[in-house]
């Protein structure tokens, strides 16, 4: 299972978390999913600090699904730190958020987000979005070297 591509799901809302996990499972995305419930947890996981001290920093997720409105450290700040660190700067980051505010979209792309997806209220559309995201980023997209499929 170590070799299987990991998804880091950064989401503070338990309902959204449950629904996203359900959508991923329903669409047979069997990848390991690491949950982070705020910005600090996400950064601890990526940089192997705090609760994740001792984790190998070379083992990085194939995809990060990042909410913007997060407790402690918000999504845009998490994205900034990912892009400013040699170990994580090439990781695909998809912003998955309720917002469709122009300034959030612009800031997201300016900080180097790979995609910006607005969570639809309609669960069927939401599920389709999640399936397509998984399909594209885990199967079609060729990840940058040194992440994902390393032994």
């Amino acid at each position: 299972m170590n070799n299987l591509k990991t998804i880091l799901l950064v989401e503070d809302n338990p309902d959204d978390l449950a629904l996203t996990l359900r959508a991923l499972k329903n669409h047979n995305v069997a990848n390991k999913i690491v949950e982070a419930h705020d910005g600090v947890e996400a950064l601890d996981y990526l940089f192997c600090t705090g609760a994740h001290a001792g984790r190998d920093t070379r083992q990085q997720p194939q995809l990060i699904l990042l909410d913007l409105k997060l407790p402690k450290v918000d999504g845009l700040e998490v994205l900034r730190r990912i892009r400013n660190d040699q170990r994580t700067r090439l990781l695909p980051v998809v912003i998955l958020t309720s917002s469709d505010e122009e300034k959030d979209i612009v800031s997201g792309y300016a900080l180097g987000a790979n995609s910006f997806v607005r969570k639809p209220v309609d669960f069927e559309q939401f599920a389709v979005s999640v399936r397509q995201l998984g399909f594209y980023w885990l199967l079609i997209n060729e990840p940058p070297p040194a992440i994902g499929g390393l032994p």
Binding site: D15, D16, L19, R22, S98, S99, E101, D122, F123, F126
Partner: peptide, 20 residues
């Protein structure tokens, strides 16, 4: 901003769990 963010999340839960 708050409306667009926070009001939609509970609706998504209502819709999502009804669907589930």
């Amino acid at each position: 901003y708050s409306v667009s963010h926070d009001l939609r999340a509970p609706l998504r839960a209502m819709d999502g769990f009804s669907m589930a």
